[in-house]
């Protein structure tokens, strides 16, 4: 067979490209529901973690725990995830004990996404969880370590509000109530995180409905 002609080459390339396109397109379409299901599970797990709830091992229990304890409420133009303590014999009405909002932004290398939660009874930051982070291994990726995340816990909302946000300072120099030791050797990731977390915090604080001034929808 003569396979060197231009017309033959064009036909061959077209057919092969169509076949490859069909294969990749088919795989993408067929696998999308599996991928979406996984993404939902990742988000649900992150939400349970940031709200301080135990993450169940199987997907059925995960959905049940999520539906039982997490509720989304719209405050003005802001969706807030609420952790509710279901009604009991002693507490007739479900109680909202924590709020969580997502934060996102460009890190040093890639986009960072996560959730920050607030303890409504203690009026402090409850936790932060990253749902997507891919920074420099050994440096910016230390943000995902439990030790770093623990630095945020217990910081007073009032102190943050008065100081116009949290401040990630040089490791070992945090003195003020709104200051947190930054990640050593990752000043760019730390700065990005500071900006994202403060934006998320201020979205709540600058929303009249969240402060109880406008009521919720």
């Amino acid at each position: 067979m003569r396979t060197s002609g231009s017309l033959y080459t064009i036909c061959f390339a077209t057919l092969l490209a169509a076949l490859c396109g069909l294969l990749t397109g088919g795989a993408k379409k067929y696998l999308k529901p599996h991928q979406d299901r996984h993404m939902d599970a990742v988000k649900a797990k992150a939400m349970l973690e940031v709200m301080g709830l135990k993450i169940p091992a199987n997907s059925g229990e995960l959905a049940e725990t999520y539906n039982r304890h997490i509720m989304v409420t719209r405050y003005g133009d802001l969706d807030i995830y609420e952790r509710i303590v279901p009604e009991t014999r002693w507490a007739r009405r479900p109680q909202v004990v924590a709020w969580a909002v997502p934060f996102a932004g460009q890190g040093y290398i890639n986009r960072i996404e996560g959730l920050i939660s607030f303890d409504l009874q203690k009026q402090t930051i409850k936790d932060i969880v990253f749902t997507s982070i891919s920074e420099t291994p050994g440096l910016g990726m230390k943000a995902n370590l439990p030790e770093f995340r623990a630095r945020f816990r217990g910081i007073s909302i009032d102190a943050i509000y008065k100081a116009d946000g949290v401040k990630l300072v040089k490791p070992g120099t945090a003195r003020q109530p709104n200051e947190i030791d930054a990640i050593a050797g990752a000043s760019m990731t730390s700065k990005s995180l500071e900006r994202m977390i403060n934006e998320a915090f201020m979205r709540i604080m600058n929303n009249p409905a969240c402060r109880g001034e406008g009521g919720n929808d």
Binding site: M1, T3, S4, Y8, T9, F12, A13, L16, A17, C20, L23, T24, A27, K28, L31, H34, Q35, H38
Partner: peptide, 29 residues
């Protein structure tokens, strides 16, 4: 036997890219 010699490298690259894309989707799922 059917592959035009002049475009064989690009054809091989296309085939590799196709299988890698399928694999990537499988891993993600």
């Amino acid at each position: 036997r059917f592959m035009p010699q002049s475009v064989r490298l690009i054809v091989q690259m296309l085939i590799i890219a196709t299988f890698v894309s399928v694999l990537d989707e499988l891993l993600k799922a």
